[in-house]
């Protein structure tokens, strides 16, 4: 197995992890609009109207980004959105923790206040940090195994030329680092 192939495999794992979690999180919340709104309200960060907007629209975005990541379509851009979402989630959870709120992160639709002994802020933040890392990998190196990107957007002639000749023709120089 070549280094390239190993890196492609890591890319696939990152895609499935970040995309799978986003997809699951979105699907679990999209059928429960009231609970989704209330989970955002529980953070006490936003005016109700904003919380309502986030609660209703975030699951749609999560499903779309998650699905595209799992399929491997527009990997670099969807990974960027996913990574930014994770940063926002980490900030929200950290702020709830810092303010001493006792809430579930609501990440998968079971949000809201919990008993103070049942908060899981650290593990929630570590999980999202791991997913952020997966997103960051894909932003830097979006290529991965079994991705629709390679099927749909394969540049004609560029791939074989790049693979065989170190002196790549002018067409490939655009993509070189």
């Amino acid at each position: 197995m070549t280094t390239t192939r190993v890196a492609d495999l890591i890319g696939l794992v990152c895609r499935l992890a970040l995309g799978g979690v986003l997809l699951a999180a979105g699907l679990l919340k999209v059928g429960d609009p009231v609970g989704s709104i209330q989970s955002v309200v529980a953070y006490r960060l936003f005016d109700y109207r904003i919380a309502e907007m986030i609660g209703l629209m975030l699951p749609v975005v999560e499903i779309a980004v998650g699905l595209l990541l799992v399929l491997g379509l527009f990997t670099r851009w969807t990974a960027l959105i996913g990574a930014v979402l994770m940063l926002a989630f980490i900030a929200g959870i950290a702020s709830a923790w810092a303010r001493g709120l006792a809430i579930d992160c609501g990440c998968f639709g079971t949000g809201g206040p919990v008993d103070p002994s049942e908060t899981a802020y650290l593990s929630e933040i570590l999980r999202d940090a791991g997913l952020f890392a997966a997103g960051a990998w894909l932003v830097v190196r979006p290529r991965s195994l079994v991705a629709l990107d390679t099927l749909v957007f394969r540049r004609p002639a560029a791939d074989p030329a790049a693979a065989t000749s170190p002196h790549t023709p002018t067409t490939a120089s655009k993509g070189a680092p």
């Binding site: 209703l56 629209m57 749609v60 779309a64 527009f74």
Partner: peptide
């Protein structure tokens, strides 16, 4: 294509918001 997909997702999100909003 990416821009079209992004716009479609945004439209769906807004439609869901308007339809489901209490």
């Amino acid at each position: 294509i990416g821009a079209v997909v992004a716009v479609v997702v945004a439209i769906i999100a807004v439609v869901v918001y308007l339809a489901v909003r209490p």
